[in-house]
Design a protein around this nucleic acid. Structure first.
Length: 728
DNA sequence: TTCTGAGGTGTTTTT
DNA sequence: CACCTCAGAA
């Protein structure tokens, strides 16, 4: 017990041992947030204030949930497996599985990930003969999700113009389609379980009375719906105001809010303070992670944002090294510099897995990967194309889904003709019409064709029926194996030239099923029913909710590559923030959005605060983007850092000192002739857009136009006759 | 019905 | 550049 609280600083100790009341902990980066959260849980349990079953702990990522679980297990001699610790989505899934009937869902309901959701929407538009030029599927998907994240059903959506009333109508149709197919998308998991609790008073009361302490990690990332969900479970919802409220312990950092794009509301922090009448807001401002210079840079950067709750990190550690800034001639050159630095660091004894390469968007990893591969440095990419997102895995899972739930049209459409079995688009269209007439699923429509001469379709149905019968009593891994074999998937990839990797992935899927069955099969702590709709359904849910972080090469110490978003919550001795260029980071799309630049700045803040000892900021003068070379200005965020903390690195021109092609051409004679004395690559100033770089030119004389990259102001084509460009 | 190649298009971040 | 769609041929 006293061990538990040892080495906590005063504010941390205060937070951990707060009496039973609502609280908000403003925890800066590296201030021991996760430690406080888990120690709080351990303290509550070990002092007998609450049993493990009375705790509800919510995080955003599976990684954070797992971390919390294992730290807790290390502190307390209890089995944490039955505890309600998980992501919002994971916990909602658990709730809906346990009460699927009350929630109006089939026992084996499936979860659509974003790709599934998009294809479901495309299918819907096709079925309804809606022009997808008029209603772009992606935009529609965003519209639907944004409404769900606000807690709004189609019936409550406001149709303020003609276009929107069309979208609302499609939202209604989409709801119907999902219900018919027995599938739910990510946002639906939350909305559905919120509605379940709201409408079912006894059930809601049951959970309200059960959870005495609700702890929320990364509270700044909650959206409206998640906040409402928390409020309801804490007994502050509309169901039964007289139920004694559970204690909400929210931990967050408004400066690290980087998920506004998926509905996160920083305003929830203020609402929490007001609506829960918080007596306590505890600030954790001592940073145990980064050295002084890094922290000073982070503080200086984030100070430029307005409307912060306010917080200034400090450290007892020394100033440490200056922040290194490097400008490459090209993205390739940047990557080469990075690998050279890493090689040197590793030579000096730095562990490879203590070095992280961060970037704004996934596409940037390619050049870095290429260079790391070339010099033979082991690396690991997080995010990007995940295991469960690979097409062969999706195909295999679709067979599994079809067996668990034949009405899942997304799964049906995916594999009805894969591997090809003579059911082309015409046959599928016919099925779709039949299904729509009967208001039934594709599978149902296809099955009712039995006896008719369309043999390909009936054979497919027979195949699925046979597979279902054959796998009924098999353990999960054998089910997976059997399906891969008998569906013809293995055969198909065996015949394909490039199929080797895919076959390995399919084998890996069987392994994943094996370890899933082993872990899930273990008995739960307090004899609680796992209530998951069977091993198959729970494996499928696992596949949708945890896109599969594990990939090959996990054992080896490797350089870590990931987006800044994925790096949140992690820390490394050495961090490279790469691609610090206007238009990339901050991203040009962010400039259009309300508050977009501030969110980008918070993102930069997150990136900077990942570093313990050494931080590199790198950018390139030119970068291959969308298949063409773009000329880039350094990111404004670099200029926002105090110059005295920075040190520019000029690489000695050694063995690798040859100048890459683009720069050589720009310096010499290779580029297209100048127009009006302006050259590609040249910096220019525009009265309205500010400073930019000329990216390309077109035409000559009075018709001449130049394309200029103004970074956050965007990419513009300007007619030289009118736009008064001056060299900058 | 399936395969192939041409052509057009769009692109941030994630549970 | 990478993806998808479409048209035309086998």
């Amino acid at each position: 017990m006293s061990d538990l609280l040892a080495n906590l600083n005063p504010p941390q100790l205060a937070a951990v041992t707060l009496p039973a009341q609502h609280a908000l902990i403003l925890a800066g980066a590296g201030s021991g947030k996760t430690r406080v959260l888990t120690t709080r849980i351990a303290w509550l349990i070990s002092t007998g204030q609450v049993g493990p079953q009375g705790i509800l702990a919510v995080t955003f990522t599976n990684k954070a949930a797992k971390e919390m679980r294992s730290r807790l297990a290390a502190m307390l001699p209890i089995n944490t497996r039955g505890m309600w610790i998980g992501t919002f989505h994971g916990l909602c899934n658990r709730l809906l599985r346990a009460h699927h009937r009350e929630a109006g869902l089939p026992e084996t309901f499936q979860i659509l990930d974003s790709a599934d959701q998009l294809s479901a929407i495309k299918r819907l538009l096709k079925n309804l003969n809606v022009d997808d030029e008029k209603f772009p599927p992606r935009e529609l998907m965003h519209f639907i999700n944004a409404h769900k994240e606000q807690g709004l059903r189609a019936a409550q959506a406001e149709a303020y113009d003609h276009y929107t009333s069309g979208r609302v109508e499609l939202y209604t149709e989409y709801e119907g389609q999902c219900q018919r197919e027995g599938v739910v998308d990510f946002a639906e998991l939350l909305l559905r379980s919120y509605e379940l609790l709201q409408r079912n008073e006894p059930l809601c009361r049951h959970y309200q009375e059960r959870f005495r302490h609700i702890l929320v990690d990364e509270f700044q990332d909650t959206n409206r719906l998640q906040y409402a969900w928390l409020k309801l479970l804490a007994g502050r919802g509309s169901v039964s105001p007289e139920t004694p409220a559970a204690c909400v312990f929210a931990v967050g950092d408004d400066d690290q809010s980087i998920y506004a794009f998926r509905g996160a509301e920083i305003g929830n922090m203020r609402d929490l303070q007001r609506e829960f009448e918080l007596a306590n807001v505890i600030r954790l401002e001592q940073n145990y992670r980064s050295q002084g210079n890094i922290l000073d840079a982070a503080n200086a950067l984030i100070k430029q944002n307005r409307g912060r709750l306010g917080k200034n990190l400090w450290t007892e550690a020394g100033a440490g090294e200056p922040i290194r800034v490097f400008e490459g001639l090209s993205d390739f050159d940047e990557a080469r510099f990075i690998t050279e630095e890493i090689a040197e660091l590793v030579r000096d004894g730095m562990a490879r897995d203590q070095i992280a390469l961060l970037y704004r968007s996934n596409a940037q990893s390619r050049v870095l990967e290429h260079q790391l591969f070339t010099v033979g440095l082991p690396y690991r990419v997080h995010g990007g194309l995940r295991f469960f997102d690979r097409q062969e895995i999706k195909h295999a899972l679709a067979y599994l889904r079809l067996i668990a739930n034949p009405d899942d049209d997304t799964a049906f459409a995916r594999v009805v003709n894969f591997p090809t079995r003579g059911i082309g688009s015409r046959s599928v269209e016919a099925l779709q019409e039949a299904a729509q007439r009967a208001n039934a699923s594709l599978y149902h429509a296809a099955a009712s064709l039995a006896g008719k001469p369309n043999t390909a379709v009936t054979r497919f149905i027979a195949l699925i029926e046979t597979l279902r019968a054959e796998t009924r009593d098999l353990p999960l891994p054998e089910v997976v194996d059997h399906l891969i074999e008998k569906s013809g998937l293995r055969q198909h990839y065996l015949a394909e030239k490039e199929g080797q990797d895919r076959l390995e992935n399919l084998d890996e899927l069987i392994n994943a099923a094996t370890s899933f069955a082993r872990e899930e099969g273990a008995p739960l702590a307090d004899g609680e029913a796992s209530a998951t709709g069977g091993p198959l359904a729970s494996f499928l849910a696992h596949a949708s909710l945890e896109a599969g972080e594990h990939q090959a090469g996990e054992g080896e110490a490797a350089v870590q590559l990931m987006t800044v978003h994925a790096a949140k919550g992690l820390e490394f001795d050495v961090v490279f923030i790469t691609g610090l260029e206007q238009g990339l980071f901050p991203h040009e799309n962010a400039a259009q959005e309300q508050g977009g630049l501030e969110e980008e700045r918070r993102l930069m803040y997150v990136a900077v605060t990942r570093a313990r000892h050494r931080l590199y900021l790198t950018h390139a003068q030119t970068r291959m983007l969308h298949g063409q070379t773009r000329y880039c200005l350094p990111s404004a965020f670099v200029d926002e850092l105090p110059a005295e903390l920075l040190r520019k690195i000029n690489r000695a021109m050694g063995a690798g000192g040859q100048v890459p092609a683009p720069a050589r051409a720009a310096a010499g004679s290779g580029w297209p002739a100048a127009t009006h004395g302006l050259r590609i690559g040249q910096n220019v100033r525009h009265a309205r857009f500010g400073v930019g770089v000329i990216v390309s030119t077109e035409g000559a004389g009075p018709e001449a136009r130049v394309q200029v990259n103004f970074g956050s102001a965007g990419m513009k084509w300007l007619a030289l006759e009118y736009a008064r460009l001056t060299p900058a």
